[in-house]
Simulated scan of single mutants.
Amino acid sequence: MSDSVPEPVEARPWRPDDGPPPHVWTWPRTDPPALLVWSHGRWRWATVTARQDRADGTIVYQVAVDLTGSTSVTTRLYAWPQPGLRVGHRSASEPSDRLPFGTSVPHAPPR
Score class of each variant (00 low, 15 high):
Ala55Met: 01
Gln62Tyr: 00
Ala50Ile: 10
Val63Thr: 06
Arg44Asp: 07
Val63Glu: 00
Gln52Tyr: 10
Asp53Ile: 04
Ser72Ala: 14
Arg51Lys: 10
Val65Ala: 08
Val48Asn: 08
Val48Cys: 11
Val48Phe: 06
Thr68Gln: 08
Tyr61Thr: 00
Ser72Cys: 11
Arg44Glu: 08
Ala46Pro: 02
Tyr61Pro: 02
Ser70Lys: 10
Val60Phe: 06
Thr49Asp: 05
Ala46Asp: 02
Ala55Arg: 05
Thr49Lys: 11
Gln62Trp: 00
Ser70His: 11
Tyr61Glu: 07
Gln52Trp: 04
Trp43Met: 10
Arg51Tyr: 01
Arg54His: 09
Ile59Glu: 09
Ser70Leu: 10
Ala64His: 02
Arg44His: 09
Arg54Leu: 01
Thr49Met: 09
Val63Asp: 01
Val63Ile: 10
Thr47His: 06
Val65Tyr: 02
Arg44Phe: 11
Arg42Asn: 12
Gly57Asn: 03
Ser72Glu: 15
Val60Ser: 01
Gly41Val: 11
Arg44Cys: 07
Trp45Arg: 12
Gly41Asn: 11
Arg54Met: 01
Val48Asp: 01
Ala50Met: 13
Arg44Trp: 10
Arg42Val: 15
Ala64Met: 02
Ser72His: 14
Thr68Trp: 04
Ala55Cys: 01
Trp45Pro: 00
Leu67Pro: 10
Trp43Ile: 11
Leu67His: 01
Gln52His: 12
Ser70Trp: 01
Thr49Val: 14
Val48Ser: 05
Tyr61Ile: 00
Thr49Leu: 12
Val48Tyr: 06
Thr68Lys: 07
Thr58Ser: 06
Thr71Phe: 13
Ser70Cys: 09
Gln62Thr: 14
Asp66Ala: 01
Ala46Thr: 02
Arg44Ala: 02
Ser39Arg: 14
Val60Glu: 00
Ala46Gly: 01
His40Asp: 15
Gln52Val: 01
Gln62Ser: 04
Thr58Gln: 00
Thr58Gly: 00
Val48Pro: 00
Val60Ile: 11
Asp56Ser: 03
Thr71Cys: 07
His40Asn: 15
Thr47Arg: 15
Ala55Lys: 07
Ala55Tyr: 00
Asp56Glu: 03
Ser39Val: 10
Gly41Trp: 15
Thr58Ala: 09
Gly41Leu: 12
Trp43Gly: 14
Ser70Thr: 15
Gln62Pro: 07
Val60Gln: 00
Arg44Leu: 09
Thr49Ala: 08
Trp43Phe: 10
Asp66Glu: 03
Asp56Gly: 03
Ala64Leu: 06
Ser39Ala: 15
Asp56Met: 03
Trp43Ser: 13
Thr68Val: 11
Gln62Asn: 05
Ser39Met: 14
Val60Asn: 05
Val63Phe: 01
Tyr61Asn: 05
Gly69Ser: 05
Ser70Tyr: 03
Arg42Trp: 13
Arg54Thr: 06
